[in-house]
Amino acid sequence: MIKKIFVALAIFGLFSIFLPIMINFDFHQNLSELSTQYVKGSVEDLNSQNVVTSVIVTYRGLDTLGEVTVLFLATAGIGFLLKKRKGKKRVASELLQTSSSFLSVVIIMFGIFIFSHGHLTPGGGFQGGVMIASAFLLLMLSDVNLELNHTILQFIESLSGAFYVVVGLIGLVLTIGFLNSKIIPLGEYGNLFSAGAIPLIYSFVGLKVGSELTNILDAMGGD
């Protein structure tokens, strides 16, 4: 009984905190000073169509590097804790096998499109990486005896992580700043090869996230 009263009080307290925010809620009509700088700088300074991508990769590039590191540590932890065991396996149906072998290629291509066009269209390395991992999940569900080549996966993962840091360090050597995307010529606005190093960095992030999540799914669904 007392427990329920406390829960009700907690919910009421949260409600009373959020009520003034909800009443005063209004869609922002004007950008704040910082946002104006980002929107202007993304077009004039970095030549990137997608403002979100230029904030994530360049203005807050160090945070993204930290995020990728956190994901790497999570993958390493899961790999240590979960051992792959061999058990009884159910064979997938003919329909699933045929369709997934066709669909997975299309999904991988779409994932590569998402992360290589991160500076032009919504999306980027993380979303594209998850899509690639979901294509491998489809393959794992359809073919139960699928053995992923872990050497290649680790090779892709560690190399793309290392190159991400190297691209950041090149900026430091050229004294523009760590992870600054102006180390490569900016190109023409709206083209695939524009916005400096942003597509390069996002491709590394996409490959790294894709191989890491494939590893996680393989370790978890292995038995």
Partner: peptide, 17 residues
């Protein structure tokens, strides 16, 4: 951008994990 992340990671990957 956020919608894509939420749909792919929140609805897709987390559910599967």
């Amino acid at each position: 951008d956020v919608a894509m992340t939420e749909a792919s990671i929140g609805a897709g990957l987390t559910t599967i994990v």
